[in-house]
């Protein structure tokens, strides 16, 4: 009995809170910031990102330029690989961001499937091509690096292969999310695919690792000290930061465009509907006129 009472009290409280939240969102004053859901509102996203984007883009360009200049001109050449090692300053950040981008897809998938955030759907659609681009950049620079070091443009090494599989996963996601006439179905299917992919990705990684390994082992791990000269580590870190900012800036810019595109489409649809309705009324009117004329 007390339990039931408590439950009912909780329900009333929840209903009251929900009503208050609805009222708050209906009025112009924003609700107090409590959680992530606040940022799921596309209008608020547009306002906020419009302010942040110029700074983000400028910071990305500046940090990447400094990192690349440091890495390409100032950092020492490798004792064994010579100047070819400088490809690393593009290759390694691109590889990190390719993996991070897929993780971002999976996070968007959870947000979309669990909370149905419309912004998460759009973000998944926009992260896909950017992540695929960084994966392609990683594969291309890796191939350029492989030619002088291993003597071949492409070797079926574990890392290259798992990156290639990641690239295919991105392409599948990009193709799937645009393959449905109803965009909502596409978002949902692509979200499920992203989750399946993120579960399968470590399995692919380990299986390919055991299958064949020629690539050098990790120089930077989360647990141990980096096995890398500090003069190379700093420019690499700056490059990674710059590329990450760049990734974020591109995604935010694309997302803004997608939100606005959706609004324009909704407006056009509404206008078309309105036009059809007035047209329909006009023909209705003519018909009644004609009938009236015939009757008279």
């Amino acid at each position: 009995m007390p339990v039931g009472f408590k439950l009912r009290a909780l329900q009333t409280a929840a209903a009251a809170a929900y009503g208050a939240a609805v009222d708050a969102s209906a009025s112009v004053a924003p609700a107090p910031a409590r959680n992530l859901h606040r940022f799921a509102n596309p209008g608020r996203f547009l306002r906020l990102s419009g302010k942040v984007l110029p700074y983000l883009a400028a910071a990305a360009l500046a940090v990447s330029a400094v990192g690349l200049w440091w890495g390409l001109f100032r950092a020492p050449a490798d004792w064994q690989q010579g100047d070819a090692v400088r490809i690393m300053y593009v290759h390694v950040p691109a590889a990190w961001l390719a993996s991070l981008g897929y993780l971002g897809l999976a996070v968007c998938a959870v947000l979309s499937l669990v909370w149905r955030h419309p912004l998460a759907d759009l973000a998944a659609a926009e992260i896909g091509p950017v992540g695929a681009g960084f994966t392609a950049l990683c594969l291309a620079t890796g191939s350029l690096w492989g030619k002088p070091m291993w003597g071949a443009w492409w070797v079926w090494d574990a890392r290259l292969t798992s990156m290639l599989v990641l690239f295919f996963l991105y392409l599948g996601h990009i193709a799937l999310i645009r393959a449905f006439d109803d965009p909502q179905r596409g978002y949902r299917a692509a979200a499920i695919l992203a989750l399946v992919g993120v579960v399968d990705l470590p399995i692919i990684k380990f299986s390919v690792d055991w299958w064949n390994t020629l690539h050098q082992p990790d120089s930077i791990t989360l647990t141990g000290a980096p096995t890398m000269y500090v003069g190379m580590l700093y420019p690499l870190a700056v490059c990674a930061l710059g590329f990450t900012l760049g990734f974020a800036a591109i995604v935010v810019a694309r997302l803004r465009a997608a939100v606005m595109e959706r609004r324009i489409r909704a407006l056009l649809m509404a206008r078309a509907q309105e036009g059809r309705m007035t047209e329909g009324r006009m023909t209705d009117g003519r018909m009644t006129d004609g009938r009236a004329a015939g009757a008279s």
Partner: peptide
């Protein structure tokens, strides 16, 4: 997942083959 998609038959291998790589290995 591809149920109801345009060109679902073409899309299906593109989605499943990369995921099946560990089985093959």
């Amino acid at each position: 997942i591809v149920l109801g998609a345009r060109r679902g038959g073409v899309l299906l291998p593109l989605l499943v083959l990369p995921l099946a790589a560990p089985v093959l290995i």
